[in-house]
């Protein structure tokens, strides 16, 4: 491979990585649809079932598509979200999405999966089968994030597209102590500072994060906000010891090579 080819391949790989690492959006739960176009009681008795009419005009987006339902009592109304999702999947199937929601999202099966720490699988399947504003998506993801937070499974999601939403969830509910502890224990101080910056932005408080390698903002957080002061302080102390030992080792190596 020549240098040019290598460069091209690297750029292609970067584009692919950007696709793979695209984060699922974090949005509000969608509103209930309750629009009634007309109530025609004279049609009562004509049918015993609902009739769903879907507009399959070319080039209309799934969320803009006109889907209406005529009920047996003569009401003509907009289809609710459940019916809309079903009709969109019937007439315009998304690749790999099933027509019926898999049983893995029911509570028993979900708890079993979480017990086996299949976090990435659950989140991937949830973002495949639900839209981000679907109530079930938010239920499944929040249960998974909570489980990760309780069982310290952050490493399972590191370098995946779900780490961002996980962090946002924890920051939103002011529950970042476990994540901070894990970041300090794995000596990622720049990430600690990024996390505290996000925390400050979302929850409207200020931390001094001008230097990404300093521990100032962290000590500020521990004294003012944290609920787990003891363990966080211990972790900070251990981190400082680690840094000191590393410096000692480096100095020793330098001395051994006769550089000092």
């Amino acid at each position: 491979m020549t240098d040019e080819q290598l460069k091209e391949t690297l750029e292609e790989a970067k584009e692919r990585a950007e696709d793979i690492l695209q984060m699922p959006p974090v949005v509000q739960v969608r509103n209930v649809i309750d629009r009634v176009y007309i109530n025609d009681p004279a049609l009562k008795g004509l049918e015993s079932t609902n009739t769903v009419f879907t507009d399959v005009t070319f080039g209309v987006k799934d969320q803009d598509r006109l889907i209406v339902v005529r009920e047996p009592n003569g009401v003509l109304r907009d289809a609710n979200w459940d019916e809309r999702d079903r009709m969109n999947q019937v007439y315009f199937p998304k690749p790999n999405r099933k027509l019926k929601v898999p049983k893995m999202f029911q509570d028993d099966y979900l708890q079993d999966l979480l017990k086996r720490k299949e976090y990435e699988f659950v989140l991937n399947m949830a973002s495949l089968h639900f839209d981000p504003d679907h109530p079930d998506y938010q239920r499944v993801t929040s249960i998974t994030y909570q489980h990760i937070n309780d069982n310290n499974g952050f490493n399972m999601l590191r370098s995946t597209r779900h780490f961002g939403p996980l962090t946002f969830y924890l920051v939103w509910f002011k529950n970042v102590d476990n994540l901070l502890l894990e970041l300090i224990e794995t000596a990622r101080i720049d990430e600690v500072n990024h996390l505290l910056q996000l925390y400050g932005k979302v929850n409207e408080c200020q931390f001094n994060v001008s230097d990404l390698q300093s521990l100032d903002s962290l000590s500020e957080y521990i004294t003012n906000v944290s609920n787990k002061k003891g363990s966080l302080e211990l972790a900070v102390q251990a981190y400082k010891d680690l840094i000191r030992q590393r410096k000692q080792l480096e100095d020793g190596i330098q001395a051994a090579h006769g550089l000092i």
């Binding site: 609902n50 769903v52 399959v56 070319f58 006109l66 007439y91």
Partner: peptide, 22 residues
Amino acid sequence: LGTYDPLPNEHNEKLVSLNYER
């Protein structure tokens, strides 16, 4: 221009698709 399925499905619905534009 569309399809019509006269047998109700498991959710008790008859499905009709219509290409209104055409």
